[in-house]
Design a protein around this nucleic acid. Structure first.
Lengths: 318, 318
DNA sequence: TAAAGTATTTAAAACGTTTTAAGGATTGCG
DNA sequence: CGCAATCCTTAAAACGTTTTAAATACTTTA
């Protein structure tokens, strides 16, 4: 049985109300009464009971985080940022990491049951509309993190257009004239196109999966610079290019995206567009806290950054 | 404002007590009353308030998970397992992922404040004794996951002795006679030694960091098989061995540990001792739930498994 | 039909906190 | 000294649930 306000009150011969007031730094309670109370609370290691408090305040100081997977450190670092900012605000972070579609509904249910004050999402979950309707009906604030929905909820996301520009500009500045670009992320593609247009170069060849490159490279052997969707795709692309008898970066340069830890390992050393993962998480939680506090928040784009390693170089052949 | 038991009671002209009893499937309430109540609860999307409930039951149905980092997918997969099992038991998972020592105390504080029913730890945190004393004083159950302390708390961990045996036996069966083994994990080292002794082979050379291998390989050029501490260390070892002018696996074989996702990528293809990461997480949560339920639990060792890829082969030279 | 038994419902208290309005002391001022 | 003003403290209600013991309704049984 833990120490309660009543117990403190009993021991000091004051009322529970006074204790509560004192512990909440209410200016109405006398200096030395307050001091006495705080001293005893400290000594007995009093911790306010979240149930009693929540019942009254209708706040749980709990936030939910839902993501498909944190494997490979991308969402891991985001979660780091979220958790850190949450803890600083005395918020607990309830995580629901799951790929299995049928488990998402149950995670949302748990978030609701545990009375989270808000939810951060790293996926759009458009096929779970019914469950999210419940969240909205309860007016539980939501923030999208590293993804965005059709517009009703605020989001934090890397400026993908700029990222695409950065990737293409880097390749162009190295002397590459004919590029290829993964078309999965529309904004990055748009940025890529923009850079190419500015230099009056031919449009990049488009691909979705790494394997598409086999035929693309055969059709257009002039391609020397590739923008991949992610560092993970860079691995795939590297393998495919090498299986075509070409070398990285001598014959073909690759720019990845994300700046995952494995891009740094000696065997790979990928040039990439870094996303500020931890900052994205911190910002998302920050925004959620503001939303919970009743403030209006606006979506934010975070700055990507070019990290040059060994997968890009000037093209050997012109 | 959400629907409460009182509201349901009002609408159906019964007492709140009846509603509570009905929703908890108490046999005392009449069949059709119960049916009516459940139907309305369903229709109005009633969700029991965790504060009211927790105040009464003294349970939060919240568990805490504390880990140093989930980067690189090892603890990520463990967390997956924990979360899945937690959700199945209607438990929320509060995560405190942090490397920063000064943030650990604050995470524990948050766990206590939010009234978690139990805590899973993936690190021993021996220098945070004061904070953990508070946890113990409150009799909050704890389970160690993929680590173990000096004995007071139950743990789940891979059978490292067996893992060490597996690694050495594999190398020996390929024909390697002189081995090296990372000595960081004592049980794995013991398993390694055991296998070597069984075959009456010379004891393995010991190293801690990958860089130690530079001098070790020079002192003992007969070494052809290496057991690394982890797949991550395998990367380092590979790089060092190659920088010594030797090839993997032609000249030197490497066995890693963990079976992380990157061990599968084409550039690496590491032979490794796989740890059942997800199962470890599931088991840890299972044990915690039993502990919370008042049962006695015993620690468990999970089976490691040899995964043969391309970093091991029979030694070229005898 | 009264008594005894069973089935169903309910009032009330409890859990720990915060908050509001009112209460009691003390002080200052005329 | 009396009245107001100020300062400090407190009783009581509220939040939503569960639980216990008591109350009510309905069946049997004699």
């Amino acid at each position: 049985m833990s120490v309660t306000i009543k117990e403190l009150a009993r021991q000091l011969n004051v009322s529970p109300a006074t204790v509560s007031l004192a512990l909440n730094d209410d200016c109405r309670v006398a200096e030395n009464t307050s001091a006495k109370i705080k001293a005893l609370a400290d000594k007995l290691d009093y911790v306010p009971n979240n149930f009693g408090r929540g019942l009254q305040s209708r706040k749980s100081c709990l936030a939910g985080y839902l993501a498909g997977s944190v494997t490979g450190s991308f969402f891991d670092l985001i979660m780091h940022g979220i958790g850190e900012t949450a803890a600083a605000a005395d918020y607990g972070l309830l995580t629901g990491i799951t790929r299995a579609s049928e488990k998402i509904d149950s995670q949302i249910k748990i978030f609701i049951e545990k009375n989270v004050d808000g939810i951060i999402l790293s996926s759009t979950y458009s096929n779970h509309a019914k469950q999210f309707e419940k969240v909205e009906r309860r007016k539980i604030p939501m923030v999208f993190c590293s993804t965005r929905d059709s517009g009703r909820h605020p989001f934090v996301i890397t400026d993908n257009f700029k990222g695409g520009q950065l990737a293409a500009s880097h390749l162009i500045s190295l002397g590459h004239r004919q590029l290829a670009c993964c078309s999965i992320e529309k904004d990055r593609l748009a940025g890529n196109l923009d850079a190419v247009h500015r230099h009056s170069l031919p449009e990049p060849a488009l691909f979705q999966k790494g394997e598409d490159l086999v035929s693309i490279m055969k059709t257009n052997p002039l391609i020397t610079g590739i923008t991949a969707y992610s560092d993970a795709q860079s691995i795939e692309v590297k393998h495919i290019i090498e299986s075509l008898g070409l070398r990285i970066p001598d014959d073909v340069s690759i720019v990845g995206f994300d700046d995952m830890w494995f891009s740094e390992i000696q065997e790979l050393r990928f040039t990439t567009i870094a996303q500020p993962k931890k900052e994205i998480g911190q910002t998302a939680m920050q925004m959620l806290l503001e939303l919970i506090g009743g403030k209006a928040v606006t979506s934010r784009f975070m700055e990507p950054e070019l990290v040059v390693r060994k997968s890009t170089a000037p093209p050997a052949r012109k």
